[in-house]
Design a protein around this nucleic acid. Structure first.
Length: 137
DNA sequence: GCCAACGTTGGC
DNA sequence: GCCAACGTTGGC
């Protein structure tokens, strides 16, 4: 099982809204590298839900419930989206500052390529981050 | 509000 | 095919 991190600006689509919805289409991705990551996702993959711009922290865990299919919000029909559902909020949100200060987590693609909105998380990073956030890996 | 990173567009 | 201009993302 692979692990991922997706970003959302909380004033556009927050974790709370995600929980209310119960399931969502992860649409609107317009970056080819991010789209490639979406296409690699498998059902059952776990995903960190990160609040960008405001919050700047991982606030919850999501799960992939549908693999990539065409994103209807893309008029050119080139980009894809996946479906995600919330699994659990984290007990202790993991801030970007904490991530950057950590020798293990500062290697995350989240840090190295800050503009990428869908990025992979290694198994080691996943397990370690889950430990810090008080959730089971 | 600013700026760095970086992707895209368009002229040549 | 190069590169300048420009737009967007996202941290600070």
């Amino acid at each position: 099982m692979a692990h991922w991190l997706v970003k959302s600006e909380p004033f556009k689509y927050s974790w709370d809204q995600f929980v209310k919805d119960g399931r969502t289409h992860w649409d609107g991705v317009r970056n080819h590298q991010a789209a490639k990551n979406l296409k690699t996702m498998a059902v059952g993959d776990r995903v960190f839900f990160y609040h960008s711009n405001e919050g700047l922290e991982i606030v919850g865990i999501a799960e992939v419930v549908a693999t990539a299919y065409p994103d209807p919000s893309d008029p050119a029909g080139r980009f894809v989206m996946v479906d995600l559902k919330p699994v659990t909020p984290v007990k202790a949100p993991l801030t970007l500052k904490r991530i950057k200060d950590d020798p293990v987590l500062s290697e995350m693609q989240l840090v190295k390529q800050s503009r990428l909105s869908v990025c992979p998380v290694t198994d080691d990073q996943w397990a370690y981050a889950c430990g810090l956030m008080g959730v089971e890996a």
